[in-house]
C-alpha cells in the first residue's frame, strides 16, 4: 500500500443514459499530495468523486484507492477514505456534536472514544462553541467545517473534497484552505474538485482539467501555464528609438517573437518558464547596452488563461453558466 498511488482511475466512463458524464478518464495521484480536479459545472467532477468514494459504479473502467479495487472491495475502500461532498452531508436538525458523534459511532468507535473524537474535531475546526447548537443555525462556513469534520472522523488516508469552498466568502475560503494544507502536512492525500482557478493554483500539486466528461489537460500549475508559451516580461522604453537596439540585444534571451506595441510603448518579451530567473539577465543586458526603461514587470499567465485556452470559457463566465444552469442533484 505504501508506494501505491493515493487513487487511480483507468479509462473510467460513466453514462447516465444518453449523458456521457465521464468518457475514458485516466488519472493517478501520488500519496501525500493535493490533486486538483478543475472543471466548470457539469464537467463530471462529482461523478468521478462519487465513483471513487463507492457511491456509484462506473459504466466502464477501473478505479483504485491505495491499490484497493473500488468496485470489488468497496467496504475496504470505505475504511480508507473520507468524503466531503458537494452538498453538506449533515443533518440540519441535529447539533454539530450529535452529527459528528453519529458518524464516529458509524465508524464503530466505542461510545467513549466517539465522545473524545467528537470533542477533538470540533475544537480543531473551531466549532466547540457551536457544538450544542442545531446545524440549521450555522453559517455556510461553519457547515462546511462541520462537514469536513465528519469526513475526518475515521482518520482517512485519502480525502475527497468536492467543491469544498463553493459559495463561501473569501475569508472563510482561505480559512478552509489553511485547514486543507494542515491535513496534507499531516500526510493525508487529497482529491479536491473546484471551479475556481485560483483555488487549484493555490492548493494543488497536480491539476487535471476536465470538461464535458473528458480530461483535457493535466500537469502542475506551472506546466499548464507553460503550455501557453510561459512567462512574458513587459516594459516600456524611455526613448522609443531604442527599440531596434532592444530587439538585437534581447533576441538571445527570448523564447519567441518579441512584440513591440508602439501605441502603448510596450515591449513584450516571451521568456518561457522560470521568467523570474531570466528577469535579472534581461535587466543586465539592457543596462550593458545603456537602454533606459520604465515600468518593468513579469507577467505570468494565470490558470485563467489556461482555462480559456482549453475550454473556451473564461473563469468569470463559468460562474455565469453555473447561475443559469441549475446544478444536478441526486
Amino acid at each position: 500500500m505504501s508506494n501505491q498511488p493515493a487513487f487511480k482511475a483507468i479509462k473510467v466512463s460513466k453514462y447516465f443514459g444518453e449523458v456521457h458524464a465521464l468518457s475514458e478518464v485516466s488519472l493517478s495521484s501520488e500519496q501525500g499530495k493535493i490533486f486538483g480536479l478543475l472543471g466548470p459545472n457539469g464537467a463530471g467532477k462529482t461523478t468521478l468523486v462519487n465513483m471513487l468514494s463507492t457511491l456509484t459504479e462506473p459504466t466502464a473502467g477501473k478505479l483504485e484507492v491505495l491499490g484497493v479495487d473500488v468496485i470489488n472491495n468497496p467496504n475496504q475502500v470505505r475504511k480508507l477514505i473520507g468524503l466531503a461532498g458537494q452538498f453538506a452531508a449533515i443533518d440540519e436538525y441535529l447539533t454539530g456534536e450529535e452529527n459528528i458523534y453519529m458518524v464516529a459511532r458509524l465508524y464503530h468507535l466505542s461510545a467513549k472514544e466517539a465522545k473524545i473524537r467528537t470533542k477533538k474535531l470540533l475544537e480543531e475546526l473551531s466549532l466547540a462553541d457551536a457544538a450544542k447548537r442545531q446545524v440549521r443555525t450555522y453559517s455556510g462556513g461553519m457547515r462546511r467545517r462541520l462537514d469536513l469534520g465528519a469526513s475526518l472522523v475515521g482518520h482517512p488516508k485519502v480525502l475527497f473534497l468536492d467543491e469544498p469552498t463553493t459559495g463561501l466568502d473569501p475569508r472563510t475560503r482561505s480559512e478552509l484552505w489553511d485547514i486543507i494544507r494542515d491535513l496534507v502536512n499531516e500526510g493525508t492525500s487529497i482529491l479536491l474538485t473546484t471551479q475556481y482557478l485560483e483555488e487549484a493554483d493555490e492548493l494543488a500539486d497536480h491539476i487535471a482539467v476536465i470538461d464535458h466528461g473528458k480530461l483535457i489537460a493535466q500537469g502542475t500549475s506551472r506546466q499548464l501555464k507553460s503550455q501557453l508559451g510561459g512567462d512574458v516580461i513587459k516594459f516600456s522604453l524611455k526613448n522609443k528609438n531604442d527599440i531596434e537596439k532592444v530587439m538585437a540585444v534581447l533576441k538571445p534571451l527570448s523564447s519567441g517573437k518579441i512584440i513591440y506595441e508602439e501605441k502603448d510603448n510596450l515591449v513584450n518579451l516571451p521568456v518561457g518558464s522560470h521568467g523570474s530567473r531570466k528577469l535579472i539577465d534581461v535587466v543586465r543586458k539592457l543596462d550593458g547596452a545603456k537602454i533606459e526603461t520604465v515600468s518593468f514587470e513579469l507577467h505570468e499567465p494565470t490558470l485563467d488563461d489556461v482555462f480559456l485556452n482549453l475550454t473556451g470559457i473564461k473563469a468569470s463566465e463559468v460562474a455565469e453558466v453555473k447561475k443559469s444552469k441549475k446544478g444536478w442533484r441526486k
Binding site: 463507492t54 457511491l55 475504511k79 468524503l83 461532498g85 452538498f87 453538506a88 452531508a89 443533518d91 458509524l106
Partner: peptide, 10 residues
C-alpha cells in the same frame, strides 16, 4: 446530502 456520507462509510 446526508445519504451520500452514509453510503461512503464502512
Amino acid at each position: 446530502g446526508l445519504i451520500t456520507r452514509l453510503k461512503s462509510l464502512p
